[in-house]
């Protein structure tokens, strides 16, 4: 076990911020913490729950410049726009790192790979901070995660008495941490994560059992409350729908410049599934909520592998009309239990 005091950590972070782009939890006022670029360790908050927004925007920016079109007279020049330099996301919660597993499966591993995402992913180092507890709405342990899960990180810090236990996970993490001042724990003191109270495990129906509940009235009842405000999709670490837009950047007498932007989109938007002629095959709010949840728990795992949910609990917190993914998961499991009972009776 390696160990680092808080002072050693801030000294190391001050060194890192001079060399690289560092993103870290930052108190932006009124109790709100966001992952934000920082220029020195004093800008970082070490006492935080889950930041209001996930770290998704640093791999899949809400607005990303993909290409630039420069038009002079009838001549058009097209330029691919490249990503920024190497970045470290320090203090990322294990659930937010877990979210990248879903994005990786689609944008990087599914052919053809997305050039921008893959490049940015390659240049990103994740140094996680274990959660000292599970907060209200957190359910990472129900979807394959844990508050101190190192699996999807390059290195993990675990807050312990007097500092941080340090766990390097990948070569990338080891290389980065080589510049930090560690102490090997030799005094026999217990510096592992203290036992923390876990939130109750929520039953999550396995992907293959979801199709049987697609036509339940439940979805339409749930939809009655939805405002189609799209907040749940924007704050979600794994929601990845995107739109492309050409935006004007500059224009002069001889030169007109546009950029093609990739921007976040949301499948809960009313006209999301509208096609030529105005036909919309998903006009009901309940159909769109169902699509979002099925994407997370059936389509995504079936098509790409990982679940599309990491249990961060943000959608529970942010929904203005209290649509609760935990309540939904419990309801679907209850529906499955009823189905199991019926099927057992039929067999008898």
């Amino acid at each position: 076990m390696m160990f680092m005091t808080h002072d050693d950590l801030t000294t190391w972070l001050d060194h890192l911020t001079k060399e690289l782009k560092v993103i870290a939890p930052r108190d932006v006022g009124k109790g709100h913490v966001l992952y934000r670029p920082v220029t020195n360790s004093s800008e970082i908050t070490f006492d935080y729950t889950r930041p209001d927004l996930s770290a998704k925007e640093f791999l899949l920016p809400h607005t990303e410049r993909l290409m630039r079109f420069e038009k002079r007279a009838d001549q058009l020049e097209m330029h691919d726009l490249s990503c920024e330099a190497e970045q470290i996301i320090f203090g990322i919660r294990p659930c937010d790192a877990h979210g990248f597993v879903a994005l990786d499966a689609l944008f990087r591993d599914q052919e053809p790979a997305d050039a921008h995402y893959s490049q940015r992913r390659e240049m990103t180092i994740l140094v996680g901070m274990a959660c000292p507890q599970m907060w209200e709405g957190c359910f990472c342990t129900s979807v394959g995660g844990a508050p101190d899960d190192p699996s999807h990180l390059d290195a993990l810090l675990i807050p312990v008495d007097g500092g941080y236990a340090v766990q390097t996970v990948t070569d990338k993490g080891e290389k980065l941490l080589a510049s930090a001042d560690f102490k090997e724990v030799t005094d026999g003191q217990d510096r592992t994560l203290p036992e923390i109270p876990m939130n109750e495990i929520v039953p999550v129906l396995p992907p293959e059992q979801w199709p049987g509940h697609f036509d339940e009235d439940y979805w339409m009842r749930l939809g009655e409350r939805c405002l189609s405000c799209k907040l749940c999709t924007f704050i979600c670490p794994t929601c990845r729908c995107f739109d492309l837009r050409d935006e004007p950047i500059a224009s002069g007498a001889n030169l007109v410049v546009h950029e093609r932007m990739r921007v976040w989109d949301a499948c809960t938007a009313p006209n999301y599934r509208t096609i030529a002629g105005g036909h919309n095959s998903r006009p009901l709010k309940g159909q769109r909520i169902r699509n979002r949840y099925y994407c997370k728990f059936h389509y995504y795992p079936q098509d790409f592998g990982p679940l599309g949910c990491v249990g961060c609990g943000r959608c529970v917190e942010v929904c203005p009309v209290n649509i609760d993914i935990l309540e939904m998961l419990s309801t679907v499991s209850a529906m499955q239990r009823e189905l199991d009972v019926l099927e057992a009776e039929v067999e008898l």
């Binding site: 995107f242 999301y272 599934r273 095959s281």
Partner: peptide
């Protein structure tokens, strides 16, 4: 069929019909 796709390569999410 049609789906008003944005990417055409299975990533943007727009044209799904179920799975």
């Amino acid at each position: 069929l049609e789906g008003r796709m944005h990417c055409g390569i299975g990533k943007c999410g727009r044209c799904n019909l179920g799975d």
